[in-house]
């Protein structure tokens, strides 16, 4: 069964939306932000990181609704709204749209905010708001609540394999007819503890510039963002591209067998047609 990508919503350090991503790709560079963290010993850690914007979310939701929603869920909400808008579904009947969210680490900042609440003030002062927003599926829940999506909702966490793993179940929902469309997305966020851990592991290797595929040196930098795709079963037309197969396995145990190449959607507009995406 072929999955057609009918809409994309995205937010990252380049801005929000497909046009912002396209501009970033065409310019071939996006400058990271320079962040600083002051440590207890007085030392100042200065480093580059790619932070994502949530500007523009007010276009979809009143500020009042966003008061108690954390950055992780705001990124998720923005990308989800943009994807539905891109697919022309923002005003459509959404009763049979499922939600699938993949995340490697979940809402890190809120997780630590919750720990702060009892480490700073005692267990009796633990924050119920931080606790309920610290569960991995909080972002998917906010998407369902704000968009009134009552079909199934799923959140998957498998570190770097989260997206591929979640895509398998999204595909299955569509194949079984449980939903007509899946709002399929992924989100992960930066936080200072993450920086601390990365600095421990990578030492000073994260000062940029980022050089992908340079296997001789560690140049990765911390980043964050969220992306959603509107997926549906479609043999013919796909707005962006089609996903022919979702295959997961353990390459260390058995060889991965690739399927034969498929064909692209007919009304692809951007980016250039992807013939087959295999996760």
């Amino acid at each position: 069964m072929r999955l057609a990508i009918q809409g994309i919503g995205i937010t990252g350090s380049f801005g929000a939306g497909v046009d912002a991503l396209r501009s970033a790709l065409q310019s071939k560079t996006v400058a990271p932000q320079q962040l600083t963290v002051d440590h207890h010993d007085g030392a100042r850690d200065s480093f580059p990181a790619y932070r994502a914007t949530t500007e523009g979310l007010e276009r979809f939701l009143p500020k009042r609704e966003l008061r108690r929603i954390d950055h992780f869920s705001k990124m998720t909400l923005l990308a989800a709204h943009l994807a539905l808008e891109d697919a022309g579904l923002l005003e459509a009947d959404r009763s049979r749209i499922g939600v699938v969210v993949a995340s490697g680490y979940g809402p890190l900042k809120t997780t630590f905010n919750f720990l702060d609440s009892y480490l700073d003030f005692g267990y009796s002062c633990s924050s119920p708001t931080h606790f309920s927003n610290s569960v991995h599926n909080a972002a998917a829940a906010h998407v369902s609540m704000q968009l009134k999506l009552t079909s199934p909702s799923l959140t998957v966490t498998q570190f770097e394999m989260s997206v591929a793993s979640a895509l398998l179940s999204a595909r299955q929902w569509l194949a079984e007819g449980r939903v007509d469309r899946v709002l399929f997305g992924a989100a992960d966020e930066y936080c200072e503890v993450l920086r601390y851990c990365r600095r421990h592991v990578f030492a000073d290797g994260e000062q940029g510039p980022l050089r992908p595929l340079d296997l001789e040196v560690q140049t990765a930098m911390a980043g964050e963002g969220a992306v959603f795709m509107v997926l549906e079963c479609a043999d013919e037309a796909a707005a962006y591209a089609a996903i022919d197969s979702v295959i997961l396995g353990n390459h260390a145990v058995a060889p991965l067998t690739m399927p034969p190449g498929g064909s692209c959607g007919r009304r692809s507009r951007w980016p250039p047609p992807v013939r087959t995406m295999v996760c």
Binding site: N137, L154, V156, T157, Q158, S165, L248, G249, N250, V253
Partner: peptide, 12 residues
């Protein structure tokens, strides 16, 4: 040492 899909579901 399994070979197949692996998924951790976090639906609370």
């Amino acid at each position: 040492k399994l070979n197949g899909p692996v998924q951790t579901v976090v639906n609370a």
